[in-house]
Amino acid sequence: MSSNNTGPQHTTAHHVLSTETFTCIRCGLTVPALAPDGPRRNHCPSCLHSRHVLDHVEGGASTCGSRMSPISIAVLRTGDWMLIHRCVGCDELTSNPVCRDDNQLILMRMAVRPLAEPPFPLEAFGSL
């Protein structure tokens, strides 16, 4: 979802030393395409932004290519966190697993963000 030259030949076994990198579309960081724990990355570990190169509704490649900003944290039944991205250009939503070396402070900030601005007073929950 983030690197420009995604091809089937790159999804081979991980024992091949991969030096492939991509540049983050937002912060410009050069990121290795493979995460340390194995799978391919699709977002920058520093600012967690991604790029819209896969079309998740129709399938296949997307013509959008815009930046995708992280908006929310979803939790699977297994307890693993997923990162919800929203495309800045076409408003499409995707979910991606969180890598081990992702910026933990940005993740935590997103996780507690709803509680910073509740739409109703939270005091009522104290009496439940």
Binding site: S72, A74, R86, L93, R113, P119
Partner: peptide, 17 residues
């Protein structure tokens, strides 16, 4: 309902899957 997102203006959004 999968998760909650917050808009920059503070509105809560429900993400459905």
């Amino acid at each position: 309902a999968l998760s909650l997102a917050v808009r920059p203006d503070g509105e809560w959004m429900i993400i459905h899957q």
